[in-house]
Design a protein around this nucleic acid. Structure first.
Lengths: 337, 337
DNA sequence: TTGAAAGCGCTACCAT
DNA sequence: ATGGTAGCGCTTTCAA
């Protein structure tokens, strides 16, 4: 049986109140008593029950993280960043893969509430924002990462997607590309929409032709990215560069180009987005727009935990927008004349 | 404020005992009372507190998963499989990245205990097995995944590493390779050792020369894999095939070969291990030894949860050994004469 | 079929 | 400086 606070108290010949004090470093306990109690806790391998403590109104020191799929490298890296900062601040992390299904989101949210987690970080797309509204009334803090839900007053950490798209376009234009196309995610994904908007704005500002036909929406798979890239690359007026809204799509594009015996970047340049491990292992390594994943993870946790301990901080909803960064590798080059 | 069982009871004009009964579907409650109570729970958006329930001796329905690094694709995929099955069985998953540091393992183990998780799945290497011994006495169930600790009587799910290594060697020999080398993980990693042993056994059985020099130990990085592969490929008696104990190393090998202007698989064949997403996005896609990741994740959870509910099952330590499978892609070919 | 009450392990307030 | 004790929200006898 696990030792309880009573065992310690009995063994030390003090009251449980005293033991509780030394555990929490509160109140006034004499040096010797304190040492004696600590020695006994050690000897009995005593560990206070977070469960019991939480029941008295204290925190559970547990956070929930909702992502579409923890096995997707981007979210796996986000999770690592979030976990690291959580650990530093004394929190554990419950991960929840939603596959972007609202039903799953609802289920997980309800579960996390029943388990009295102190806060929830949402990094998954949600079709119906009303799903999380009820939570705002509860005593659970909420924060968003890599997702934007302007309609909701919650802490949010995102990268400046519009600028990321613009960065990609600028790079390509500087290299002399005129015919560019885009592999986007589903139109309902706001980050993808923004990236495309940013990309387009630069292309148009440069006075280059732009047609909605050159933007292909893909589902979440590499295969679909490849398929859509093939369509694009088979056009008679073949684009000389492809901007992809995530790295799975970019790798699909790479594969499509190879299948068509196009050399990269000589015949076609490809830009990715996220800068996950995939960008560095692909062949050629991907030029990509990096999201500062580690900083983002750290920041949401900071925001969330701050809101937990500070009533006033909890009230306002901060919105942190981090800078995307162009990472040049070998999948892009100046156009060959 | 969140509604409690008291609120429901008061509202329904019954005792909390009755409410508890309907929540748990126990005891004999008349149809009408039950419906009435359920209606009120619905209306008040009541969700029973797992915390409080756990304090009375019930489970927390939470499992812990220890892995070296959740951002490593192999473990991310393991985590997904474990999470899926946990969810199906009604459990949440707390993830813990240990970076293979014993100190971190200890810290997490103690944390999970304080939080009264029902079980812990360990997929991380541990130098000092004594660290987890104390847990065995506790009321926390333990199971191992992709790790072997023969000294410990705990449920274990692994792939047959020896056979995996053998499979790799057989494939290479069948393709006519005579000079083969190996990129291994740190010698302390038992799975890697077994893979090398299996590989070697086949090579020797075929009467081919084998020297310990042809096995290079690498740390956990792609870079080190590349470095060690370079050493091997620069030998005058250059190996025609490389067997790598994980996919990061295999990709390092691919990069090394390219740097030396060697064509793959024409000049050098490369085999990986795990069959993660990396194997399918690399160029060329990797021939690899697949671990049945999904089946492994499902199985540990089944084992663990079974042990939780069934005293007798908890006693014995099952050891499940799953079959590795050779997946042929494009990084290997018969030797060119 | 229903309810009263003890208790799970801990915190915090109030006495002493 | 230390201890008694009333909860926290729920489960589970045991009575009625």
């Amino acid at each position: 049986m696990k030792a309880t606070i009573y065992d310690i108290a009995r063994e030390a010949g003090v009251s449980i109140a005293t033991v509780s004090q030394v555990i929490n470093g509160k109140g006034k306990i004499s040096e010797e008593r304190r040492n004696e109690v600590m020695r006994i806790m050690e000897r009995l391998n005593y560990q206070p029950s977070v469960i019991a403590s939480a029941l008295t109104g204290k925190r559970t020191f547990t956070l929930g993280l909702l992502v579409p799929d923890i096995s997707n490298p981007f979210f796996a890296e986000i999770a690592r960043a979030v976990e690291d900062q959580s650990r530093r601040l004394g929190y554990s992390l419950v991960i929840c893969s939603t596959d972007n299904k609202d039903e799953r989101v609802e289920r997980y949210l309800s579960l996390l509430r029943q388990k009295s987690v102190d806060g929830i970080i949402i990094g998954t797309g949600i079709d119906n924002e009303d799903i999380i509204k009820p939570l705002l009334t509860q005593s659970i803090a909420i924060a968003l990462i890599a997702r934007d839900m302007p309609a909701l007053a919650v802490h949010t950490v995102v990268v400046e997607d519009f600028k990321g798209g613009a960065l990609g376009a600028e790079h390509l234009l500087k290299e002399g590309h005129h015919r560019v196309a885009v592999l986007a995610e589903h139109p309902k994904v706001s980050s993808s929409r923004e990236r495309v908007r940013g990309f387009k704005s630069v292309v148009e500002a440069a006075g280059l032709p732009w047609s909605e036909e050159s933007v292909k929406s893909c589902d979440y798979t590499l295969e679909d990215g490849k398929r859509k890239a093939l369509e694009l690359l088979k056009l008679t007026e073949r684009p000389t560069a492809l901007f992809c809204c995530n790295e799975l799509l970019a790798i699909g594009a790479l594969q499509a180009a190879k299948e068509l015996k196009l050399r990269i970047p000589r015949d076609v340049s490809v830009i990715g987005f996220d800068n996950t491990i995939l960008a560095s292992v692909s062949d050629p390594p991907l030029t990509t727009i990096a999201q500062p994943i580690e900083a983002m993870g750290k920041k949401v946790v900071d925001l969330l935990v701050e809101a937990l301990q500070d009533k006033s901080a909890a009230a306002k909803a901060e919105r942190i927008v981090l800078e995307p960064e162009l990472i040049i590798r070998q999948s892009t080059s100046s156009i060959q004349v």
